[in-house]
Design a protein around this nucleic acid. Sequence first.
DNA 1: CGGCTAAAGCAAAGTGCTTTGCGTTAAGCT
DNA 2: AGCTTAACGCAAAGCACTTTGCTTTAGCCG
Lengths: 184, 184
Amino acid sequence: MATTRRPGGRSARVQAAVHRAVTDLVCERGADQVTIPAVAERAEVNPTTVYRRWGSIPALLAEVAAAEESGPPAPTGDLGADLAAYAEWTLADLSRPGGIAFFRAEVAADVDERRAGLRECLKRSSTTIEALLDRARGAGHEVPALTDVIDRVVAPLYFRVVFSIPGTDAAYARGLASALHREA
Amino acid sequence: MATTRRPGGRSARVQAAVHRAVTDLVCERGADQVTIPAVAERAEVNPTTVYRRWGSIPALLAEVAAAEESGPPAPTGDLGADLAAYAEWTLADLSRPGGIAFFRAEVAADVDERRAGLRECLKRSSTTIEALLDRARGAGHEVPALTDVIDRVVAPLYFRVVFSIPGTDAAYARGLASALHREA
DNA sequence: CGGCTAAAGCAAAGTGCTTTGCGTTAAGCT
DNA sequence: AGCTTAACGCAAAGCACTTTGCTTTAGCCG
């Protein structure tokens, strides 16, 4: 039989407190300075609880990042607008507190975990983009390849956020999308 | 008076042994699993020595990465060929053992150090690219902006290496460069 | 060659993350 | 309401990295 769970009152409160503590600490100190004892103290829970429920910092950051991520914009079928919206959303997702921190943590995590985290991250992006392209393709348009969207839109945004290149804002994101769209 | 240094025999041997140990361990376990005690043991030197000479893992990785990096190819003035060569070299640099590990370490390092390391990394790339563009510009050609080279060539390569996207080889790197070149 | 001292080695203490065993609390269910 | 037990708290032990004071080794220079 399946072990019965207890998501009710207390567990939910602990989870909320821990999540909040993680985002706060990531903003204040950066993802690499976030330790489980620090999170536990800020959340006013026992470190043992965090160790037993989440096990490691990468796992905890992953959960928090996933919980905070807003879904990507729904494609409308207008390829130009959809690409722009997707680019803008991607940048917003990376720029939000903890967004890039999550990415940093994944990049730095140990081999097995890293592969899992990065692969999932890439797969989600690919799926979203494919949906967007399919929608436009269904409307009878010529669409760029997935790989081009990644190279021309997604990669520059990640690169610019990681390197903190100034001027990387929503307008820039839209510009990347429209430059690709114009060529198709 | 300036403190006299002793780069001779023993220090040089220790440095070489430590460098070799770092690259070996990075290859075997990944950058995040490399600790100073582990490096010291592999290099058959005392951990204290590593702590006193390098202080931290990021600093040590930075030195090793810098020491191993081969210089970028000299620009010939042929923009298409130079861009392709630069793209290929960048990919080779990232792909070599420890290349991306160094990047990963920088990305994950704490705030102050990270900024310094990433900024220097970006600055070096920018300088190299500018030199390449200037050379072509001097030959009277129309050249793309630095920012376009970064977005279209450098960023995709970093992104693909970090995410381990298959098919990211020398031919792909050249393809990125030539796609940009064709537009100009 | 012989002195000076930078650089390496050694050992012990310090620090902070992590694990473990056990008692306590409070969901969920009848 | 009362029982069961998942989930949390607590405290002590474990472990690994890091620091520190001192000793020993071996470049460099006169």
